[in-house]
């Protein structure tokens, strides 16, 4: 099998921001249609900024590492900035993914978007 980068293995073995946020402002969950994995992202938002973010992932090494990386990339960012993060960026930040694992990084991007959407849905009324 093609090898994972050192950086990816670091994020897999020591994932950042694992867990749940009990009083999250937004939660996004997506399933991977290709291999059946599941990723869930929790965000805490203050003045339009992601102040805290956590994830839970049921998936391969690349899925765990991309979840970890996406949480690092967007922590402290405004929602607009966070929405601009693409799966390619996540992959690049991990020094690349084996081609067969690119679909796992979609999951990270989509879970983040779903969490932001969820937040907006819940908070547009006030």
């Amino acid at each position: 099998m093609e090898e994972y980068s050192k950086k990816l293995m670091d994020h897999f073995m020591n994932p950042r921001n694992v867990g749940e946020i009990k009083d999250a402002d937004g939660i996004g969950e997506v399933g991977n249609p290709r291999c059946g994995d599941i990723m869930r992202i929790y965000i805490k938002v203050k003045e339009n900024r992601i102040t805290n973010i956590k994830f839970l992932t049921f998936g391969c090494g690349a899925a765990v590492a991309t979840s970890s990386m996406v949480t690092e990339l967007v922590k402290g960012k405004t929602l607009e900035e966070a929405l601009k993060v693409t799966n390619q960026e996540v992959a690049d930040s991990l020094d690349g993914l084996p081609p067969i694992k690119m679909h796992c990084s979609n999951l990270a991007e989509q879970a983040l978007k779903a969490a932001i959407e969820d937040y907006r849905k819940k908070h547009t009324k006030q």
Binding site: F12, M13, F58, G61, V64
Partner: peptide, 10 residues
């Protein structure tokens, strides 16, 4: 509740 590749990597 967990996935095999992750187990193998660890």
């Amino acid at each position: 509740y967990i996935e095999g590749e992750s187990i193998l990597l660890m």
